[in-house]
Write a protein that binds this DNA or RNA. Structure first.
Length: 421
RNA sequence: GUGGCUAUAGCUCAGUUGGAAGAGCGCCUGACUGUGGAUCAGGGUGCCGAGGGUUCAAAUCCCUCUAGCCACCCCA
């Protein structure tokens, strides 16, 4: 028996309504906020991610799906959406279209990790990027958009964390301060933290073991230069004025290297270990890093699987996908069958989701099936009806049956559907 | 990459000290040759995750692998 690849999922049946719910809301809201869709390939040259996400990040160090193609090129299945969008922006000379530019994407991402609740090797993200604006009003609009999306989906039990990482100079000074502070505790740190001390000092801050040291550690916000500080203060003012609830989290650092100034993460309160449902920030240096002009930019991504987990844990009722509102049943000979095919087509051309019996079962079995798939109405065509030029319509909720003349069937069914809603 | 738990029917699961593969639900058929849901009767639908070992005998014990769940690292 073949098995799907570890950490991947087959999506079908009752699951799909959640995907439709999120994808439709996300597309709709993106359009309202002025984002255009962008679709990039799901794989890229490996170097793109190494360069943008950062050589020393966990994503590059251990989570990339990298392989060599037949031409000997190193290919990587995209672990995140921003780098490809930035690549497209630069490669296609999109800057020429003027600024700002806003794009959204929806699609699969890949990270080679051990699966657990809320974490898979193939997962899906909705993301949004803004190119061109250095202003905190762009940061504010982006966070407002993320919050709006979550609210539109029906979620309430989440918290928006924000922080500022300053510019590059600010971070260098801050890293020194952190290093100095942790140097005095070095011996008593956990093993992981000893590694972090050498490789990625910012990560020391969100260690779950050495929390006591992190609490008294220097705060990045005390090391921000004038410009970064003003930017951060203005962002907070804009968010407050827009009525967005947020929490300042001076220990929020994020796992990708390209962030500068604003970073944010949205956490759901009831998801278990993997509680981040969205995250993002400003990446003013990235476009230049990838070979473009110096264009400030920012963006965020939300994990669709985690949004679905959140919807379920909050018991949000999402729209059902309507299919098989009507089921066409026939019995007897060829004439009834021909009539059934014609009628099903007629109803479908009127936009009514209609199922047709394909198994040639007994009427009893057909009705049972219709009931099982949630049909609201059944059309019954037999010899009797053919002779009298009528069809029988059975209301599956009440069990009532009515007869319609053939010429009136479509309108009759439409009326009944309207009444039932 | 590390650790814990787990893998028997489509689903949820039982299966004793190693001794003839089971239940509930679902599904199919019929009672009702033209009426679903309720009831009754019948039907087991299975490579007991895969491979190897121990044994007269393995779903059961041992080893390896694969996958799932949960957690760590880290993230969506």
């Amino acid at each position: 028996m073949y098995q799907k690849i570890k950490g991947t999922d087959d999506l079908y049946g009752d699951q799909m309504k959640y995907w439709y719910w999120i994808e439709e809301k996300a597309r709709e809201l993106s359009t309202i906020y002025g984002y255009g869709e962008i679709r990039t390939p799901i794989f890229e040259e490996t170097k793109l991610f190494v360069r943008s996400v950062g050589q020393d990040t966990d994503i590059v160090q251990k989570e990339m799906y990298t392989f060599e193609d037949k031409g000997g090129r190193s290919i990587t299945l995209r672990p995140e959406g921003t780098a490809p969008v930035v690549r497209a922006f630069v490669e296609n000379g999109m800057l020429a279209q003027g600024l700002p530019q806003k794009y959204f994407y929806i699609g699969p991402m890949f990270r080679y990790e051990r699966p657990q609740s809320g974490r898979q090797r193939q997962f899906h993200q909705f993301g949004a990027e803004i190119f061109g604006s250095p202003s905190p009003i762009a940061d504010a609009e982006l966070i407002i958009f993320a919050d709006k999306l979550l609210k539109e989906l029906g979620l309430v039990d989440y918290e928006i964390h924000i922080n500022s990482l300053g510019n590059e100079d600010d971070r260098i000074k801050y890293k020194e301060a952190i290093k100095e502070y942790y140097a005095q505790h070095l011996e008593s740190l956990c093993d992981d933290c000893k590694i972090r001390y050498e490789k990625n000092v910012l990560r020391l801050l969100d260690c779950k073991i050495d929390v006591k040291y992190a609490e008294n550690a220097p705060k990045i916000t005390d090391y921000l230069g004038e410009e970064s500080k003003k930017h951060y203060e203005e962002l907070k003012r804009l968010l407050t004025s827009a009525g967005i609830d947020y929490v300042e989290d001076p220990r929020l650092v994020r796992g990708l290297d390209y962030y500068s100034r604003t970073v944010f993460e949205v956490h759901h309160h009831r998801l278990g270990a993997m509680s981040a449902i969205a995250g993002g920030g400003r990446y003013d240096g990235l476009i230049k890093e990838i070979g473009g002009k110096e264009v400030p930019a920012l963006g965020f991504a939300a994990g669709i699987e985690r949004l679905i987990l959140s919807l379920k844990v909050e018991n949000v009722q999402v729209d059902e996908i309507s299919k098989n509102v009507v089921y066409v049943i026939y019995l007897g000979g060829k004439e009834a069958r021909d009539e059934a095919v014609k009628l099903a087509e007629l109803l479908r051309s009127e936009g009514i989701p209609t199922g047709l019996e394909l198994m040639e079962r007994s009427i009893s079995a057909q009705l049972k099936h219709a009931s099982r798939i949630g049909a609201k109405l059944c059309v019954i065509i037999g010899e009797d009806e053919l002779e009298r030029d009528v069809v029988v319509i059975k209301n599956m909720e009440t069990g009532e049956q009515v007869e319609f003349e053939k010429s009136f069937v479509v309108n009759g069914i439409k009326d009944m559907i309207t009444e039932m809603q």
